[in-house]
Design a protein around this nucleic acid. Structure first.
Lengths: 336, 336
DNA sequence: TAGGTCATGAGGCACGTACCTCAATTTTGA
DNA sequence: TCAAAATTGAGGTACGTGCCTCATGACCTA
């Protein structure tokens, strides 16, 4: 800061006012300071800054509540990181929001006080009231990031998630190789209104039609990400199609999938691919009912979200670069 | 530190002497201070500490040089991290050491000055002179970590690497599902003297004999991780075994594997699994000569090494906890 | 008992930033 | 043109730690 002040011909106090957006600086002076910052390649020291304020960087994660096990593992990942990141003056808080309750999420965002919260991370579908709440939070000086599913058209500063089209392609590519003789494969989605499910389906179809024309696609069927509904659906599917050779469940409800496979007595005889490494899919892998699980890597997503929050806290940078999240592929044999 | 000093009934200076292992403190006093530290749960602030010394935390990576592309990607991962970590007062340096030149590695370790280097990360095989160099560096106060391959029996503070047995199991599990009719599968290793190769082979055999008894195993053959040798080996293999249905190359030399497959005209007709995502394996995936690549995740390894170095710099902690490195599984369809 | 050694306390400066006050200077508006 | 308002400078304290000096007092040995 001394160097910047000298280069711009101003005092430390003025540099401080510019850096922290405090009033009392003429536009021309601000410009001189910003030029000096750029030409010196100065970048503020987040750790020293937090120390000087004797304040932690606070990030609030809004994660859907309900019966979705993947969301639970996201929340657990936040909890796991909370200890270590505290040493770097970051305070992570988790708020569970009733699934699909956009009003509650909007209210949560509105309640954030910019004096105590620097960054909010939300998992949400695209809804107009969320869009408004994100913009309001941004105006108040809280950086908002989207996780898992993006919110295009909003003022969110960053998005972190996997490439779902690639996930669908990968599922097709594996199933195609698992079934060299061809056969019938059923696709089960949670809902065809969900962007991520649609993207996975798109990728799956792409590769199946391009590379594995011997495979006939059945569905997609909708299980609404629920255990009971998915179980009924799969039981019916298995009963009506004795020749079925594979299933790709690109949604949730895996507990139902596994129990239907078990009770049909055909677990292990069909090739099955599912999403997200959770208790039911782990069990499915372990007992051979599921062959492969594609995982969004919740730990990686939380890790990158935290890294992005630190970059955003440094202020200026309009665009933040993070490592892409890789899709995890799990068989019984490489389970953590 | 004030709280600790008060609780122990000593001055700040004495706490500082204890924390930094400086002389001039009676054993009884040291004990009082350490008790106060434990009962208060005090842990020093690495960022403030580095700032006070106006010094960066220096980590030197010793990475084998030569034609091994995986080692190159490790080095690139270090370079990628160097910028961002500098903001956290970490200075990363890479030294490439001629492959298998244990003398050079030992000399490199011996040349480290504890005043300018806090931590060394080495990739090495098990050799007595390396063991001695590691112990000497540790005595001088430099924390040594092993990467990729461990050095049991040494004073290394931490090991970071993947579970190679699990990698072998995963390869077998995939190949087994790729070949539901059974068939002949050849295994190619770099050298049966390398611990990681042996572990992969062990895992591969485990699963093949347990779950896929229709598959006949050919080999292991040794390609010594070299392009030309591997190419000759695979060409001969393909010529002599017209019925071969799969290949698992658990070593390097993938450029040779791919070109042998191409020139035999059987690329895409055999199921092929290889290791490490590098230029030749990417090309193999892209053109269908390789079906799956198992990757050690060099970026993840470097990330965890850096995190571990920070923990080690905090001193006391005898044991450091890091996230396990997951094996990456790549098909053409989820390439980064 | 004198002289020496060792353990400890007290306090200062430094690191890079935040944020405060007060005074001095410049700009603005009527 | 002059007072009021806005802008800027100067300098202080703080954050948690490292590292230095100097003084003091306890203990040991000859």
């Amino acid at each position: 800061m001394h160097d910047v002040a000298r280069a711009a011909g101003v005092s430390l106090a003025t540099v401080d006012r510019v850096l922290n957006g405090r009033p009392g600086v003429r536009a021309a002076t601000t410009e001189r300071v910003e030029e000096a910052i750029k030409s010196l390649g100065f970048s503020r020291d987040l750790n020293a800054s937090l120390m000087a304020r004797s304040r932690n960087l606070k990030v609030v994660f809004f994660i859907p509540d309900g019966s979705n096990e993947f969301m639970d593992s996201l929340a657990e990942a936040v909890t796991r990181r909370a200890g270590p990141t505290l040493a770097d003056r970051m305070h992570l808080e988790t708020q569970r929001i009733r699934a699909l309750d956009t009003g509650a999420l909007a209210a949560g965002l509105d309640a954030l006080d910019p004096r105590t919260c620097d960054c909010a991370v939300i998992v949400t579908s695209e809804e107009p009231d969320i869009l408004a709440a994100v913009d309001s939070a941004t105006r108040r000086g809280i950086a908002v990031m989207t996780l898992v599913s993006d919110l295009p058209g909003s003022n969110r500063r960053h998005f972190i998630g996997v490439d779902n089209v690639a996930a669908g392609r990968t599922a097709a590519s594996l199933l195609g190789r698992f079934l060299p003789q061809g056969g019938q494969v059923a696709v089960i989605a949670g809902s065809l209104h969900l962007r991520d499910h649609l993207e996975r389906l798109e990728g799956f179809r792409q590769i199946l039609s391009a590379d594995f024309s011997d495979i006939e696609l059945l569905g997609p069927l909708e299980g609404h990400d629920e255990r009971a509904e998915t179980e009924a659906l799969v039981s019916k599917l298995l009963a009506e199609n004795p020749g079925l050779s594979g299933i790709y469940n690109l949604g949730a409800g895996n507990a139902g999938l596994v129990s239907a496979l078990k009770s049909s007595g055909r677990a292990g005889k069909l090739r099955v691919i599912a999403h997200e490494l959770t208790a039911p899919t782990r069990e499915g892998l372990h007992f051979g009912a599921i062959d492969v699980v594609l995982d969004q890597n919740p730990d990686g997503e939380i890790r990158e979200a935290i890294a992005a929050a630190r970059s955003l806290a440094l202020g200026a940078a309009r665009h933040v670069a993070t490592d892409p999240i890789e899709i995890g592929i799990f068989l019984r044999d490489n389970l953590r």
